[in-house]
């Protein structure tokens, strides 16, 4: 498809800081190349704002390759826009028809408070990982990597879960702002691998407890998270988390 230049009405959430009252503002943007990425379109809009002396729109972004998980825009009713398996930075303007309105909102969740405009605080995810999203192995006390064979299928499934980029789209998409997909991805990855088994039960217990403490909603198995996940992490991982959690609670000697 040849490059075109389109016009859009950009309706975007502006909020000066965490305590300020936010609201939508409309901007008109012309000459947007269809080859631009969505964030380059925002860059362009910001350049025009800066030239006018206005505060540019704040948004998290970094690698622009779809892997760091920083970008986090809720575009036209979908986290990372309407395309499947794509982050905001990999979304391109050719996907947006000319002369349409694009509505951009921040992730909405009590556990992800807005810092400014489209930038939200996702440190709750870090605290969840800190509560157990690791294998307790100190540097240096590892055995030879090939000492324990792991069937390819298991390794591949663990990889699928491990592909999570921690962007929070699952929380943004869920009508309950639940973080179950995020938590389950880590629990599932480490529960599948023999290296993670020793702590699997405690991990599931602690991570769920931290998730609850952060104020995320509960999972009602609607599947919206998986549908919107840019890495297409599936519902089976949530089931595995449930299983790990319940067997830990019901059957383990040391889980409280």
């Amino acid at each position: 498809m040849a490059e075109q230049h389109n016009s859009y009405k950009i309706k975007v959430w502006r909020q000066a800081n965490a305590n300020a009252k936010g609201g939508f503002k409309n901007y008109k943007l012309d000459g947007v190349s269809t080859d631009m990425s969505f964030l380059e379109m925002i860059d362009m809009l910001n350049e025009t704002l800066v030239r006018k002396g206005e505060d540019p729109i704040s948004f998290d972004h970094d690698c622009r390759e779809g892997i760091c998980g920083a970008c986090s825009m809720y575009i036209n009713g979908h986290p990372h826009g309407m395309l499947e398996g794509v982050t905001t930075c990999q979304l391109h303007m050719r996907s947006f028809p000319n002369n349409t309105t694009i509505t951009i909102e921040p992730w909405r969740a009590a556990a992800f408070p807005v810092i400014k405009d489209l930038t939200v605080n996702r440190s709750a995810f870090d605290r969840i990982i800190q509560s157990g999203g690791y294998v307790s192995v100190n540097t240096g006390n590892a055995r030879d990597a090939n000492e324990m064979p792991i069937p390819k299928e298991i390794a591949d499934e663990a990889f699928e879960a491990a592909a999570c980029i921690g962007c929070g789209a699952c929380v943004a998409a869920c009508k309950n702002a639940s973080a179950m997909l995020f938590v389950s991805a880590k629990v599932s990855q480490l529960a599948l691998l023999p290296q993670g088994k020793a702590e699997a039960q405690k991990r599931a217990e602690n991570m769920v407890a931290q998730m609850d403490e952060e104020g995320f909603g509960s999972c009602t198995n609607t599947g919206a998270c998986s549908a919107e996940c840019p890495k297409l992490i599936g519902q089976e991982h949530i089931a595995r988390l449930n299983r790990e959690y319940l067997t830990a609670k019901a059957g383990s000697d040391f889980v409280k």
């Binding site: 294998v135 006390n141 069937p151 390819k152 591949d156 290296q195």
Partner: peptide, 22 residues
Amino acid sequence: VNIIDQCVAQGVPFAREYGGML
């Protein structure tokens, strides 16, 4: 060589062959 051992111990899901080896 230690790095690979360390990462596998941490649960890094490296690609594997069908026999389970890296």
